[in-house]
Amino acid sequence: MKILIVDDFSTMRRIIKNLLRDLGFTNTVEADDGTTALPILQAGSIDFLVTDWNMPGMTGIELLRAVRADEKLKSIPVLMVTAEAKRDQIISAAQAGVNGYVVKPFTAVALKEKIEKIFERIDSVK
C-alpha cells in the first residue's frame, strides 16, 4: 500500500505521514500541490491519495477532478484533509467523487476512522 500525501505545508505532510505510520502505512510519498502530485500519480504505483484543498498552483479539488477524469487513475481512493469547511465545498468534493473528507484541525482518531471506512467500502465492493 503506497500512499501519496499532498499538502503545501511540510509540517502538515509530516503530521499526516506520522499518523499514517502509526496506523501501519509506512510507504508514503509527498507532493506540495496538484501540479507536482499528478506526475507521481501518473507514474503509477500509488494506491491511495490524501490531499489538502487549498494549495498554490493546482488545488486539491482540481487534482481530485483530474484523477477522476483519468482512465488509469480514476479508481484511486481519495481522502481530503482540509481546513475548507463550507457546505458548498463539501458538496462539490462529494460530487467530484471524494471518498472521505476530514476537516482540519483533526484528530488521529478521525483520520483513522475515515481511512478504515474507505477500505471497508472498497473491500465490500470487491
Partner: peptide, 29 residues
Amino acid sequence: DDTRGYGPAINKQDSPEVLNNQDEVDDLL
C-alpha cells in the same frame, strides 16, 4: 473562485454556510 478555497473558517458560528466540526461534515456527507 470556489476551487481556490477560502482557508480556515474564522467565527464559524456566524456563518450558517460553514460547518463547525467533523460530525457536521459527516452528517452532511
